[in-house]
Structure formats: C-alpha cells, structure tokens
Amino acid sequence: MSLVTAHLRRAGVIFRNEVLVLPSRIAVLVFILGLLLLPVFTQDSYILRILILTSIFALLAASWDFLSGFTGQMNFGHALFFGVAAYSTALLNLHLGIPPWGSIPLGALGGVLAGLVVGIPCLRLRGAYLALTTLSFPIILMGVVFAIPDISGGELGISGLARLSESRVGDYYISVLLMLVLSFAMWKVTDSKTGIILHAIREDELACRAAGINTTRYKLMAFCVSGFLAGISGGAYAHVMRLAGPSTLEVAMSFQVIIWAVFGGMVSIYGPVAGVFILFPLMELLRFIPQARMLVFALLVLVTLLYMPEGLIPWIRDKIETVCPRCKARNVASRSNCRVCNAVLD
C-alpha cells in the first residue's frame, strides 16, 4: 500500500514539476482531457464524426512526420501506406470475416510491406528525386486498382465493411485513443537514442555512416514504422467509412498530409497532430462561405508559412517558452532564471 502511495506521490511531484510548469505541456494536457471528456458533454454525431476523422488523419500526418520530418526521407506519396492498408483491411474484413480489432493491425502490415517496397528502391535517393519517386508509387497502385476491379472493386472500391464499433461514441474513443497512444509512442521514439540517430541521418547521413551507424537499417525501419502507423490510420478510416476506395490513394491525399504537417510544424510529431486538429475542423467551420472555402484555407496556410516557416505550433511555443542556454530545459518565457539550473535566461 505504501509502495502505491509512494508511486502516486512521485507521479504527483513529476506532474507538478514537469507538466504544470510549462504552458505547452498544460495545453497538451487540456487537449487530451478535452478529447477524452468530450462525449460526456455532447454526443452530437456530426461533431463526433469530425473528430473521428480528425484523429485518424492526425495519426496519418504524425506518421508522415516520423519519416519525412525526423528521418528526412521526403515522402510525397504517403497515401500509398494509407491506401494499401485501407484495401488490405477491407479485404480481410470482407472476405475472411476478421473483425476490426484484427483487420486493422493486419491491414497495417500491408502498410509495412508497402514501406519496404518503397523504402528499398529509394535508399540511394535523396531530395527531389526521392520525393518524385515516392510520389509515383500510389499512382502506380491506383492503376493496379483499376486493372483488377474484381478484387479491388475498381472505381467504386470495396464497400460494406463492418463498423469500427457498435456506436459513434465507441468509434470516437477508438480513434482518439489510437491517435493519442500511437502519437505518444512516436514522440517517445523520436526522443530516444533511435530518434537521435534518425535526426542525425537527416542532418548528415555520410557522417552517420562514418560513425558506424547502419543508416540503411534505420531508414528502412523508419519507412516500416511510418508505413505501419499510416496503415493503422488507413484501416481505421476504412472501417469508419465502411469503404476502401481509390480516393485513399489519390495524389491529393498525399499532399493534404504534407500541408497538415508543415502547417502544424514538422519534426515535432505534435505539430502535425495540431495541424490536423486546426485545419480539418476549420474546413467544416468554413462551410458558411462555400465559394471562398478553399481560398481562405489556402490563404491561411500561405500566411502561416510565410510568417512562421517552422510551422504554427513551434512558433507559438517559441513565443511562450524559452530554452535555457546552459541546460537546454524549457522555461516559461516570463521567467528570468532557469527553473532547473537557475542560469540567467535571455
């Protein structure tokens, strides 16, 4: 009993000293609590649908950031992982009767396979060449989808999938929890030794190899992890929509992901998540001006990137927090001394 109390007390101390001291962490906490408690206040099916899709796309955008932001493997065809997993999930569910809890992770393995298929030939490519090569893969697969309509359903796709759960609230919690847990896991990986290596590969791959790091293995791992997580979002999407169609492979889908991630802030995981949570519901709010909807969206993204080239969330974070020049700990911008080492802040 005393052990439990000790752990609780320690958790309380960490919470007080590590979470409540920084506005960004408080914002994340409020965001998570808000998402988890929302159905207590409203079960409006429209709001829940928006947030279900937002959560699914947030996971997709974060998975793109893991590959392209952290590892620097600029992927312009991220819809491939999403689409392959959506189709795999649909086929598994429809033909083998595997329920969503099985079809989604198994379908995501299709995303891993796609990651390998793309990753291996792209190992030697960089920059624009890599981006253009990755862009071609979903286009090729789209052609395959139309060439085998008996399996893929052709232009109509595969429909009639089982629901993600029995209720909209159930769908909501599954999507939100998947997004929160997997995004947190990604964030932890990027904060680990592996994450540092991924950073290093992006900054100078040659130096990494000179330091004895098997960059090929890490790059392939990044492709597979990103493919798996994008695949989870693709599978969940297929079950929510009850359809896996050619639109999951469209070039527009790949670019949409990049816009969300770049708007929110690359190389952060939480940036792309925030980007989707701002832009996707915003498009719904803009329904009252249907003619100018896309224009306002484009202007907003343009202005944000013009004045906040690193993305919205890093810009806000830099305004409200400062990094200690000595110990690199983050502090509230209003502090004059570091909360950890007491060094004078700029």
């Binding site: 429209y46 649908r49 109509l156 796709g157 929509m241 359809l243 329904r287």
Partner: peptide
C-alpha cells in the same frame, strides 16, 4: 460524408436528393 451528416443531424433535412461520384455516393 461530413456534409451529409451536417444536413441530417443539424439542418434536420427530411429527404435527400443528388450525389454524383459513385465512390462518394456509396458512403
């Protein structure tokens, strides 16, 4: 799909007409 949900749950439409792209109309 969002537009359909909005029309049914918020605008409380009694009936619906239209639709064009087959993949979208299925959903």
């Amino acid at each position: 799909t969002n537009a359909m949900e909005l029309a049914i749950t918020r605008h409380k439409v009694d009936f619906l007409v239209g639709g064009f792209r087959s993949e979208a109309v299925l959903v």
